[in-house]
């Protein structure tokens, strides 16, 4: 081998171990899942014994009432939590972006929920939502209100898991929004004060527009994440009562373990994957557009 072709090979040789891990750890399971989604496969069978049924898993899912219900719950859950978390997180960031005594302690406390393991969060909230000994109902009772069936009523259960998710994930938005805020050009904010902007006008005309690129990416990340939430809801309601809190990932896990239909579960996972892929591509394209615009601006400046 000549030194020339050696040196051309070098980067690939360095990449090879990582590529190997990627293929084994990522592509193989995904390929396996895609293949499995075309099978009528029971967990007691080996994968080779399962019947190949083409796209039937996918088509039957489209007509499946429970699957559609689960999709609706997921979309409802995700859109509500993301919007609420964005509002609260950005609001808190705007509120706490200042130098007051003890602010760093406050900030640390705010991000604590994010650091707790999801199972623990689920258990914690299940106890707090407990109909008789839970802290919420005890307080309600002390104040003379009727107790609320937080997790046992299909009307309340979704709201209850949404509250728990908001509690856990608002900090994520908060720290990213705060970081974005603190990197805003200070002099532009001062200029706007001199130009006569009140606090609100500063937020609306200067801060939010300048934070927007970060906020969009944050929102999309959170949206993608919220489609995959499992443990907290599993522990709190296990999808019930009825199907009221059965989000997609939970439905997938139950289809595989309880209904013993691995092919259907795989097909469902692929639907979820497609959904997430679409969101990721939107995010990717958005970043590309921003980069391209900045590049063309730079070019214009250099030429000008």
């Amino acid at each position: 081998m000549s030194t020339n072709s050696m040196s051309r090979m070098t980067p690939y040789m360095f990449l090879a171990p990582a590529a190997g891990f990627m293929i084994v750890g990522l592509l193989y399971p995904i390929g396996y899942m895609i293949y499995a989604s075309f099978l009528d496969w029971n967990p007691s069978q080996l994968i080779g014994e399962a019947d190949f049924i083409g796209l039937r898993n996918y088509t039957s899912l489209l007509g499946d009432e429970s699957f559609r219900e689960s999709l609706t719950v997921t979309l409802k859950f995700s859109s509500i939590v993301v919007v609420t978390e964005m509002l609260i997180g950005v609001g808190l960031a705007l509120l706490l972006d200042r130098n007051i005594r003890g602010i760093s302690v406050l900030r640390t406390i705010f991000i604590l929920p994010m650091m707790i393991a999801p199972i623990v969060v689920g258990l914690m909230w299940r106890y707090m939502y407990h109909p008789s000994v839970g802290v919420f109902n005890r307080i309600l009772k002390d104040w003379g209100f009727e107790p609320i069936p937080w997790l046992s009523d299909s009307g309340w259960a979704l709201a209850s898991i949404i509250i728990a998710d908001i509690w856990q994930w608002t900090p994520f938005i908060f720290i990213l929004a705060l970081a974005a805020l603190q990197s805003l050009p200070r002099s532009a904010l001062e200029a706007s004060r001199i130009d006569g902007a009140s606090g609100w006008q500063q937020i609306i005309h200067i801060k939010l527009p300048l934070m927007l690129p970060v906020l969009i990416v944050t929102g999309l990340l959170r949206l993608i994440d919220s489609f995959k939430v499992l443990e907290v809801i599993l522990v709190m309601t296990n999808g019930g009562p009825g199907l009221s809190t059965e989000i997609m990932s939970l439905r997938i896990s139950r289809t595989a373990s309880e209904f013993r239909e691995l092919g259907v579960a795989a097909a469902m996972s692929n639907y979820l994957l497609l959904l997430l892929l679409t969101l990721t591509i939107i995010m990717f394209v958005y970043n590309k557009i921003i980069d391209a615009r900045e590049a063309s601006v730079r070019q214009a400046v250099e030429e000008g």
Binding site: P185, A191, S192, I194, H205
Partner: peptide
């Protein structure tokens, strides 16, 4: 804003 002043900054501070 109530002082009737305008200011030019070192780094221009444009929006």
């Amino acid at each position: 804003k109530d002082r009737d002043i305008a200011m030019v900054f070192q780094d221009y501070a444009l929006y």
